[in-house]
């Protein structure tokens, strides 16, 4: 469990996190979404103890991580801009981490390294961007952290590599003991990986939810009518969005699909069907509900 209470971090005149309050449940795969400068990387650095909070507090397993060796030894942070020791091979880096993290597991390292076409004795400097990402993730997972922080981990990678990395990640965390926090500015990349999601904007969290709950709370309904029903006829539904094209009515409605379908069915439609929402669509409506324009935040 990671808890942030009124967490604030400023750099000169720039406030990266402003009274940030949230919780990240243990064992979750938490997606942090936001534009550049929204505070995602700063939050990860505060969790990993790179930065010291200027205000409020951040607690990892009940302790502040800054200069806390016991806490930090359970966290591995993979930065968006990767750094490896000069002239180092993956083997050298593994030794480096092994010398620092008591939990480093050489067998895990070997097992994961063997699944990718990476020469452990080749200098990392000569690796492609995707290979460097793979290397960083393998090394991070070999440390067997309880909290894994990934900053833009899948950014700019081709689909094959991305799938590979996801698989590594999925296998490594399958035990459910690892908390993974993935920061990204691309919500679609996280959709099928995370079970929790938080949206940051200008140093504040706009909302944070469990993805399944978010998705279950909405339903997209498409129905055809001889004559479109009036608004009064639809007043029994909590409609988030309504659009009509000819005789086809499309609604995004809060509530359970079965109940919504029953209500629509009472209006004698020619046909009616429920369609699953993308996470992006859910976010749009959730944010609109709390007064934000999603397009202005993400795009």
């Amino acid at each position: 469990m990671i808890t942030m209470n009124n967490l604030t971090k400023t750099f000169e005149n720039f406030t990266a996190l402003d009274n940030f309050t949230s919780q990240i449940p243990g064992g979750s795969i938490y997606g942090l979404v936001g534009t550049n400068g929204s505070g995602k990387s700063t939050l990860l650095r505060l969790i990993s103890g790179i930065y010291r909070p200027d205000g409020g507090e951040i607690l990892v397993y009940g302790q502040a991580p800054f200069e806390n060796i016991a806490v930090k030894s359970q966290i591995v942070h993979v930065s968006d801009d990767l750094y490896f020791l000069p002239q180092a091979t993956m083997e050298d880096m593994a030794r480096f981490y092994a010398g620092i993290y008591q939990s480093f597991d050489y067998e895990t390292y070997q097992a994961m390294a063997g699944r990718f076409p990476i020469d452990p004795k080749k200098k990392i400097g000569k690796f492609s961007k995707g290979m460097k990402r793979q290397t960083a993730l393998i090394l991070a997972l070999a440390c067997r952290p309880k909290i894994l922080l990934l900053d833009e981990a899948f950014d700019g990678l081709d689909p094959v590599i991305r799938i590979g990395l996801r698989k590594i990640l999925a296998d490594a965390i399958s035990g459910g003991e690892v908390t993974v926090i993935i920061a990204s500015h691309n919500l679609r990349e996280l959709e099928d990986l995370c079970d929790h999601m938080g949206l940051l904007h200008r140093g504040k969290i706009i909302f944070a939810r469990e993805i399944d709950q978010v998705k279950l709370g909405f339903c997209k309904v498409q129905a055809a009518f001889n004559q479109l029903p009036s608004d009064e006829a639809l007043s029994g539904l909590d409609i988030a969005q309504k659009s009509a094209a000819g005789s086809v009515l499309t609604l995004i409605v809060r509530g359970k699909p079965d109940e919504i379908k029953t209500v629509i069915g009472g209006l004698n439609p020619l046909f009616v069907e429920t369609v699953p929402l993308t996470l992006e669509e859910v976010f749009i409506h959730e944010m609109e509900a709390v007064g934000y324009d999603y397009n202005k935040i993400i795009f």
Binding site: R45, E67, I69, S73, H77, S79, D81, Y83
Partner: peptide, 16 residues
């Protein structure tokens, strides 16, 4: 003085 180096070294479980 380098952000990426800072991210590596300062995240390690090592006192400053």
């Amino acid at each position: 003085h380098s952000m990426k180096m800072s991210d590596l070294y300062h995240a390690l479980p090592v006192r400053r």
